[in-house]
Lab assay of single mutants.
Amino acid sequence: KEQQNAFYEILHLPNLTEEQRNGFIQSLKDDPSVSKEILAEAKKLNDAQA
Rank of each mutant, 00 (worst) to 15 (best):
K1C: 03
E2N: 07
E2R: 04
E2L: 09
Q3M: 08
Q4I: 14
N5C: 12
N5Y: 09
N5H: 12
N5G: 11
N5A: 07
A6L: 13
A6W: 12
A6F: 13
A6P: 14
A6M: 09
F7S: 13
F7W: 15
Y8V: 12
Y8L: 14
E9Q: 07
E9L: 04
E9H: 05
E9M: 05
I10N: 01
I10P: 01
H12C: 05
L13K: 01
L13T: 01
L13V: 01
L13W: 02
L13P: 00
P14K: 12
N15G: 06
N15A: 10
N15K: 04
L16E: 00
L16S: 00
L16M: 02
T17H: 04
E18H: 13
Q20N: 02
Q20G: 01
R21T: 05
R21W: 02
R21N: 01
N22G: 07
G23F: 12
G23I: 15
G23N: 14
G23Y: 11
F24N: 00
F24R: 00
F24I: 03
I25W: 03
I25C: 03
Q26N: 12
Q26T: 13
Q26Y: 03
S27Y: 08
S27N: 13
S27H: 11
K29D: 06
K29E: 06
D30K: 14
D30G: 11
D31I: 08
D31E: 09
P32K: 08
P32L: 12
P32I: 14
S33K: 12
V34G: 14
V34K: 06
V34E: 13
S35K: 11
S35T: 14
K36A: 08
K36M: 14
E37Y: 06
E37M: 11
E37G: 09
I38C: 03
I38E: 01
I38A: 04
I38G: 01
L39S: 04
L39T: 07
A40R: 10
A40C: 04
E41W: 07
E41I: 13
E41M: 09
E41V: 08
E41T: 11
K43M: 07
K43L: 06
L45S: 03
L45M: 07
L45V: 13
L45K: 04
L45Y: 04
N46S: 13
N46C: 03
N46M: 02
D47L: 06
D47N: 07
D47G: 09
D47W: 13
D47C: 07
D47Q: 15
A48L: 15
Q49D: 04
Q49A: 09
Q49R: 07
Q49G: 05
Q49M: 07
A50M: 08
